[in-house]
Amino acid sequence: MDILFKVLIDPFLQMGAMPDLFVQTIWDGFVTGVLYALIALGFVLIFKASGVFNFAQGIMVVFAGLTLVGLYEMGLPAPLALLVTLGVMFVLALAIERVVLRPLVNQPDIILFMATFGITYFLIGLGELIFGGNPKQMITDQLFLPRGAIEVKMLGGFVQFQKIDIAAAVIAVVMIVALAVFFQKTRIGRALRAVADSHKAALSVGISLNQIWVIVWFTAGIVALVTGIMWGARSDVSFGLQVIALKALPVLILGGFTSVPGAIVGGLIIGIGEKLGEFYWGPLVGGGIESWLAYCIALGFLLFRPQGLFGDKIIERI
């Protein structure tokens, strides 16, 4: 009975007893979820357009962040470093399309997936060769990102909102809206959606697959840069971030591999879910459950919706 009380009742009593901490946990989970969603967004964009599960998205986050800080350390002013980093991500997209994707057209998905492993190890090596393996501090001030915290007294305690977290949430929302407008309202966006629906149909109406792939990989590169800046500002830009990027996997399982809203909602569910789980239920099993709880949440959803929350239901005739 004691264990049932601890699992089913006590966490909720704690939430009621310390509501400020409950709000703080939700906020921390929300911000983490937003960042997970950004990473997942990079995966979704590429999966939609090319059917490739891009394992390299995590290292793209690290590589973009490292390039930005590395260029700044080499003496470029921050805004210029930012522009050059965008240029590097564009060149990377171009190179991936020319060197990796184009020669592998019509190959099975698994071959393309393996190719993204190759891209991962190439970027790890390239990043370490140019910028070294040491973690780097994000150039928060130089990018005019806010520092410090706002403490709001509420519910008999206080809730702390880090300014960088608020900025991360705002930037993520702006980015998602911009992507939505890009997809819905522009010619290229419509072409992207056409490619996502059917490569062959898109080709038949004169859409250039190669061009679309470059645009999509570049867009994923921009998303990676924003994620690298935001997560780098919260901790450091280090190769450890690529491990966190794997948290996008349960987000994708939950939200569906092809859905932008799914990536966002999935990210938030995983982010908030794992923080609540770790904070209220973690102590019951000695803590440290965050790393696998996300997968449990995603698997729980899978039982009921195998295609994810917003993913396309695939029905194939046998």
Partner: peptide, 22 residues
């Protein structure tokens, strides 16, 4: 009080430190 940090969460410790705050 124990606050384990799983290897994959080294750069994602807000839960542990929220527990410290509690």
């Amino acid at each position: 009080k124990l606050y384990p940090v799983p290897p994959g969460e080294m750069q994602n410790q807000s839960s542990q430190w929220l527990s410290v705050r509690r």
